[in-house]
Design a protein around this nucleic acid. Structure first.
Length: 491
RNA sequence: CGGGGUGUAGCGCAGCCCGGUAGCGCGCGUCGUUCGGGACGACGAGGUCGUGGGUUCAAAUCCCGUCACCCCGACCA
C-alpha cells in the first residue's frame, strides 16, 4: 500500500495535519488562520450537530440566533470577561470602502468610521445578556433555555486545523434560572450530555471535572469540562459548561421578581462545544492508514465496490449491489455504491480507508460464482468472505461491534496512559516522556499550579467530579492535600 | 512580539552559490491496454518565477525595499 500519511510515530503533529487534508476534511484557506471545511468534514460535523441538537431539545432547550457583532461597550461590563477576551478580538471600525483616489484598488473610506466599533463575537454572553434583560421580568419567564449554533472569532497567535482556528463553528447555550441550585443542576446536566455524546457517539472516553481558578472561564464561578486523552498523550479539552452565578445578570442588570415579590438577579449558565470536536475525533481513533470514524457519526457507513473486467460482469454486480444497498438502507444504514469506472478498485480501497468509511463490501467475479461478498472492517482492517444472504444481519452487527471496539480501544489507551504519581521527578519523567493523565496531589494554590506549568508545561486539566477524597502531600510543595487532581500537557 | 524558514505549473519540489530566457514528480486531458490493495504505455495542455524598484547587453538567479505564508516560543476551545 502506498503511503500518503506521515506515520504517528514519525511525527504526530504532521500525521494529524496530513490526515485532515488527505482525508478531505478541511484545508487552510487563503485567509490567515481560517480553514475551509470540505464536504466530507462538514458531513461529519453535521452528524455531530444533529445528535447534539436532539439531546439539547430533549432536555428542553430551544435554538435562537443572536448577532455576529457586539458593540464594544458591552465588553467592558463584565471585568474578567474583558480581560480574557480583549486581546484576541477582531474589531470592525468602518462600514464602507471606496476607490483609492491615489491609484488602483480600493481603500477603507476614512469618512465611514463607526461611532462605536463592533467586536466580532468571540463568545456571545454579552450580547445575549443584554438581550435577556428585556425578556426577563418575573419568575414566570424562567427558566430561559436557549442554544445557538454559530461561528465565533478568536484572534489566536497560532492555529491548527480544527483544533484552533481563528474562526470556528460551535454551539453556545445560555440559560437563565430563578435559583442558584437550578443553574448548577443545568450546568451539570449539560456536562453529562457532552460526556454522553463523546463516549456514545464519538466513542471517545472522557473525564468530567471542574477547572481550577486559573483554567476557569472568564466570568464563571465554576467551569466543568470534559477532557479526553489523545494518542500522543496530550489532553484535549472537548467541551465546557459554566456556572456563571449572578455575574452576568449583575453586569447587564437582569433582575426578576420571585414568587414572594422579592427582586433578585437571575442565575446563569453557558456551555459549548466546537468544531474542535472534529480534531478530537480524528486524533482519538485514526491510524497510519487514515481516518477511523465511529459508525454512529460516519456520513457513509458502508461502501460497496464492484470489481469487474467487462460490462456484463458490471451489470450483474450492480444488480446485486443495488439490492444490498436498498436492503441495508431500509434498516437505516447509509450506503454508497461506488461504480465509477474512472478509478481502479485498489484506488478506491485506499481512498475509503483514508476517509474512514467503517465497512467496505467488495463484489467481484469470484463472488458472482459463489454468491459471496468480501467484507472489510476499517477499525481492524480484517477481511471476511460472507454469503450474500447474510450481509444485512452481519453488517448491522458489525457496525455495532466497530462502534464498541473503537471505544474499548480508546478506553484501554486511556487506562494504559493514566498514572498515579507521588514523586515530582517521576511526574516530570512521565510528562516529558509519553505523556498521559497524571493523578497527583496538589496543595490547591494557583501559585503551585503555575510553577508546575512553568517547569513541566503540564497543567491541571480538571478535578474529577467523582473524585474520592484522599489524604496526601502536594507533589510540588509537600503541603497537605485532600484529593488528587489530573495533570497533563494540553492542546 | 522574539527566533528560524519559504514564496518557481493545480499540488510537492529542483534550478539561485557561479546571470544566458525554466525543469522534475504527482495531478490534469485524449487514445489504447488494464481492473481481487493507490495500474501501464503513447501523445498532449499548463508557468507575468510573490511583488515594486535597481545593477546588467541579458535577472528565477546579484542588490535594495515590500507583502504573504509556514515552523518554534508566549496566548488559547
Amino acid at each position: 500500500m502506498s503511503k500518503v500519511l506521515t506515520s504517528r510515530k514519525e511525527n504526530y503533529a504532521q500525521w494529524y495535519n496530513d490526515l485532515v487534508i488527505k482525508a478531505d476534511l478541511a484545508e487552510n484557506s487563503s485567509v490567515r488562520g481560517c480553514m475551509v471545511i470540505k464536504p466530507h468534514g462538514y458531513a461529519i460535523w453535521e452528524k455531530m450537530q444533529a445528535e447534539l441538537d436532539k439531546m439539547f431539545k430533549a432536555t428542553g432547550h430551544s435554538n435562537a440566533y443572536f448577532p455576529l457583532f457586539i458593540p464594544k461597550s458591552f465588553f467592558s461590563r463584565e471585568a474578567s470577561h474583558v480581560e480574557e477576551f480583549a486581546k484576541e478580538c477582531a474589531v470592525v471600525t468602518h462600514y464602507r470602502l471606496k476607490k483609492d483616489p491615489e491609484g488602483k484598488g480600493i481603500i477603507v473610506d476614512p469618512d465611514a468610521k463607526l461611532e462605536e466599533e463592533l467586536i466580532i463575537r468571540p463568545t456571545s454572553e454579552t450580547i445575549i445578556w443584554n438581550t435577556y434583560k428585556n425578556w426577563i421580568q418575573s419568575y414566570r419567564d424562567l427558566p430561559l433555555l436557549i442554544n445557538q449554533w454559530a461561528n465565533v472569532v478568536r484572534w489566536e497567535m497560532r492555529t491548527r486545523l480544527f483544533l484552533r482556528t481563528t474562526e470556528f463553528l460551535w454551539q453556545e447555550g445560555h440559560t437563565a434560572h430563578a435559583t442558584k441550585n437550578e443553574a448548577i443542576e443545568e450546568t451539570l446536566k449539560i456536562i453529562h450530555i457532552y460526556a454522553d455524546f463523546a463516549e456514545n457517539f464519538m466513542a471517545m472516553p472522557v473525564i468530567k471535572g471542574t477547572k481550577t481558578e486559573i483554567e476557569r472561564f472568564a466570568g464563571a464561578i465554576e467551569t466543568y469540562a470534559i477532557e479526553a486523552l489523545m494518542q500522543d498523550g496530550k489532553a484535549l479539552q472537548s467541551g465546557t459548561s459554566h456556572f456563571l452565578g449572578q455575574n452576568f445578570a449583575k453586569a447587564f442588570d437582569v433582575t426578576f421578581t420571585d414568587k414572594t415579590g422579592k427582586l433578585d438577579w437571575v442565575w446563569a449558565t453557558s456551555w459549548g462545544v466546537s468544531t474542535r470536536l472534529m480534531g478530537a475525533l480524528v486524533m482519538a481513533h485514526s491510524d497510519d492508514n487514515g481516518l477511523i470514524i465511529p459508525p454512529k457519526l460516519a456520513p457513509v457507513q458502508v461502501v460497496i465496490i464492484p470489481i469487474y473486467k467487462n460490462n456484463q460482469e458490471l451489470t450483474r454486480i450492480t444488480e446485486i449491489a443495488n439490492q444490498l444497498k436498498s436492503n441495508l438502507e431500509s434498516t437505516g444504514i447509509s450506503v454508497k455504491y461506488d461504480d465509477r469506472d474512472t478509478q481502479t478498485p485498489g484506488w478506491k480501497f485506499a481512498e475509503y480507508e483514508l476517509k474512514g468509511v467503517p465497512v467496505r463490501l467488495a463484489i467481484g467475479p469470484r463472488d458472482l460464482e459463489n454468491h459471496t461478498v468480501e467484507v472489510v472492517r476499517r477499525d481492524k482492517l480484517s477481511k471476511e468472505i460472507i454469503q450474500q444472504d447474510k450481509v444485512i444481519e452481519q453488517v448491522k452487527a458489525l457496525l455495532v461491534d466497530i462502534q464498541q471496539n473503537i471505544f474499548q480501544t480508546a478506553l484501554k489507551r486511556k487506562k494504559d496512559n493514566t498514572y498515579y504519581v507521588d514523586d515530582y521527578d517521576e511526574f516530570k519523567q512521565i510528562v516529558e516522556g509519553d505523556g498521559g493523565f497524571i493523578y497527583a496531589h496538589w496543595d490547591g494554590t494557583s501559585e503551585t499550579e503555575l510553577k508546575i506549568k512553568e517547569e513541566t508545561k503540564a497543567t491541571i486539566r480538571c478535578i474529577p467530579v467523582n473524585n474520592k477524597p484522599e489524604k496526601g502531600k502536594c507533589i510540588y510543595t509537600g503541603k497537605p492535600s485532600t484529593q488528587r487532581v489530573i495533570f497533563a500537557k494540553a492542546y
